[in-house]
Design a protein around this nucleic acid. Sequence first.
DNA 1: CACCCCACCTGGTAGC
DNA 2: TGCTACCAGGTGGGGT
Length: 271
Amino acid sequence: MPELPEVEIYRQNMVAWLGDDVVSGAVIVDPTLVVTHNVAIVERDVAGLRAESLRRIGKFLIWTTGAGSALVTHLRMTGKWVPQSPGDPTRFVRAKLVAHSGKELAFVDARRLGQWWWGRYHDVFHMCGVAEFGPDLLDADLTAERLHDRLRGSRRNIKQVLMDQGVLAGVGNIIASEGCFRARVHPAAIAGELSLDVVAALLREIRAHCAEVIRDNVGEPVTYQGEPGAVNSFLVYGRDNQPCSFCQQSIRRVVMGGRSTYFCPQCQSLT
DNA sequence: CACCCCACCTGGTAGC
DNA sequence: TGCTACCAGGTGGGGT
């Protein structure tokens, strides 16, 4: 289940995979993938996509064409981008991008929640929601001051606000827990009451976490938490009843907004 | 606007 | 082994 680091890793891996090659077409195996319902048009009109026109906004990967069209993709919970060798028996392939050289890149998605949009980019950016997104977490223009401004007046808890893509794009459930822990912020703290220093620490620690995940995994096949062979390298996520790496107190799991949330009651005080 | 639950889907795993 | 229940890193919609 990908968040910003995994999506960024896929982006970098796809750029490396394609290199100077050019996409020649797509094969849509599961037509329900394509929200815009123009399956045959997608299969044909993605021809010409190049690595340099692939970008990431939050958890979306977006290819744009010089002609003003865009292929917007989202992996949702279980999607992956996997290079395919001919005859590869990979399960759950919903679509493939094919390059001129014959190389294939599969969109693999067991739960089938992932989505593609194809059309004029003004239209599809609105349809998929990125048009209303806040600044991307890794956007160099996003400063602690700007984030602090965006939180002003909010009575919601910081953990859920961080996951609100309209405030800040890219943060998901794991990063939110990890970032709050690293910055020593209680996940239920009121977002609008955090000082600039605390917001700066949150932004710095969330970015540091992402940078570490990207650095350690780029170029490798991505595995998600809970999959066979996956190792939990997180400081708090999935570690309820295990000792905090700073103070040895037991990490707690609570549910906030229906999502598992992990924190250290000692290190992340509400007061 | 905030918050809740539900929906979309299916696989994996823990527990009996 | 088989069945059940619950869990899953995302997001949108509807209702209160």
